[in-house]
Design a protein around this nucleic acid. Structure first.
Lengths: 336, 336
DNA sequence: CTGTTAGCGCTTTCAC
DNA sequence: GTGAAAGCGCTAACAG
């Protein structure tokens, strides 16, 4: 593999000129530039990233931090971000967290990110205060997609609007005993989605005269199986629930599975609505409040690119959710 | 951020000793090593990857080449591979292909991979002969997960066994007019999964006395919507189909959606079976031939790590599929 | 067991 | 508009 010197020799210029010419810098005679480019092409020259990086201090690489790769939200965000970043000639370093059996994650270790990336994109995870401050110490732009602390650069869906749309939809159908399946919210920061959605649920319920009570709340961890367990708990606790609002479609699939197995008809006995807009939701007939995760990935990438370029950017990019009514919700059943 | 010299000064040794001590190389006095490690920790030192890479020629980075990030197979493989690689302190560079509206992809450009990665993992894509030879010219190990040319290092599910299990299941239920929804197979190499599955379907059908005919084959591109279109074509062509074998669960969801909308009952009128084992398949009741994509990712990562370490490895790691019977398949309907 | 000394392949002043 | 030369921060002989 030829180096910059081979190109310089062939084009009969210095390596400095090759460097300038190849990167489109000014102060290179058009004729010289052309000669350099041609020589590079003929030799199949491509600069060694490590060498450029060492010399410039930049890496043209963005870290993507995420606990899961295959969850719906995360995979769509990653897809959007990766395509946008690569379109701008940035590489994407995929970095997950170790998760144990209960999906508790290990602490983020920022050391391995030092001088390794030009910026960090945090996708779908609530970081601790300590982790946040360590990330900040990296000295590179950080953008949060999904959960992110106030004051940081963030891209997210309007949680209150999303959960409110779900509650209102059920209220409009006459439901008054509605349960909520959400993520864990105890000991979570105020800005984490599980907390905001729980609060949004409570507020919307109060506004619409929907009953509230501890036995109407069940917590899960965003996996389908945990959604199923949550539904089982709910059914065991109260026999008069007519509607369930779920924080994610994937958990809702678990809820629906449990209801199906328990012989509960949807929506005749119980209505189910969730948040996300997973593609198979159409087949299942799942009523949902959709968010555009792919576009959030693209938006996060654009924010990061702008920050790297030293441009000013809005701190928050808020996406609006969209209610999609299908077959898992219906009028409240008439009591016998 | 402190460099290796700062650590050397603090530990009162040379930078060479720091380098040796930190990397666990031999020929360092235990007491010296300890002193170096302590100094490094106190200073928060972490070696600059670009500098090591330039000096050693290695990058501790593996490229993951894939056309999609959010398809079931790809996301599970990526998940498995990334976790295994990071457990061995390798970074993962995520690299997708540009896809146009019809999901036709751009050609792979290996230039940007030169001296950038220590190995390449190709996930779920059929590469052209030209792309394969260019990849080979990179001079690093290449491992294929899913489709891969014979003679290369490969990890894949036994396609013939998978499609055969599907056909046999329907045959056992008495079906004799069975359609096939697969990926595009014309102008594809003999070793590509769409071709192998099509041939496997034909062979199994012949063995079981199942009718064959052009109007019983429909092609799609592995997306749910394309599966739906394929089903519509099939229904328009023949009215007596009683079973459909689909190359992927995601396409099967499209097939099921079309059947549902057309008022065709599953499995009373038509049985549907596919390949993959997507999680929501349980909720939908989809009968499927499951493959373990996550483990294939882990296996691919292990192969790559072994090759980097210079070990000998088997060229092919073949995974066995597993039939899961649920509710979308049933006995052939009795004709009126 | 440890230090000295060349690089690794680029980029970036600073002259000319 | 172009070149010479000094790094960027490490690693790998080679001595000792």
């Amino acid at each position: 593999m030829p180096g910059i010197r081979a190109v310089a020799q062939r084009a009969e210029v210095s390596t400095a000129t090759v460097s300038r010419a190849m990167r489109g810098l000014p102060n290179v005679a058009p004729e010289t530039r052309e000669r350099v480019i041609r020589a590079a092409r003929e030799l199949g020259y491509w600069p060694t990233p490590a060498a450029s990086s060492l010399a410039t201090g930049r890496t043209r690489t963005i870290a993507l931090l995420t606990p899961w790769v295959r969850r719906w939200f995360n995979s769509h965000v990653i897809d959007g971000a990766e395509r946008e970043l690569r379109a701008h000639n940035f590489d994407v370093l995929l970095h997950t967290f170790n998760l144990d059996a209960e999906e508790k994650r290990s602490e983020l270790d920022t050391k391995s990110l030092q001088r390794r990336v030009d910026a960090v994109l945090v996708v779908g995870i609530v970081l601790s205060a300590k982790e946040l401050s360590e990330l900040g110490r990296l000295g590179v732009p950080v953008v949060f997609i999904g959960p992110g602390p106030p004051g940081a650069y963030r891209v997210f869906v309007d949680d209150e609007a999303a959960i409110g749309a779900a509650v209102n939809h059920l209220a409009d159908l006459g439901h008054r005993v509605v349960a909520h399946v959400g993520g864990r919210s105890e000991n979570r920061p105020q800005w984490s989605p599980p907390v905001r959605r729980r609060q949004g649920f409570i507020r919307a319920a109060q506004e619409r005269g929907i009953e509230l009570g501890e036995e109407l709340f069940s917590q899960a961890n965003f996996s389908t199986s945990s959604g199923r367990r949550a539904a089982a708990e709910l059914l065991a606790g109260r026999g008069d629930i007519t509607g369930i609002v779920v924080d994610s479609d994937e958990m809702a699939f678990g809820v629906l599975t449990e209801l199906f197995e328990a012989g509960v008809r949807v929506p005749q006995d119980i209505s189910v609505i969730s948040i996300d807009g997973v593609e198979v939701g159409e087949l299942v007939g799942l009523t949902t409040v959709a968010q555009d995760a792919f576009s959030q990935g693209v938006a996060g990438a654009r924010t990061v690119l702008a920050l790297i370029a030293g441009k000013r950017v809005e701190h928050d990019a808020v996406f609006a959710p969209r209610l999609i009514v299908r077959r898992t919700t219906g009028p409240v059943p008439v009591r016998a």
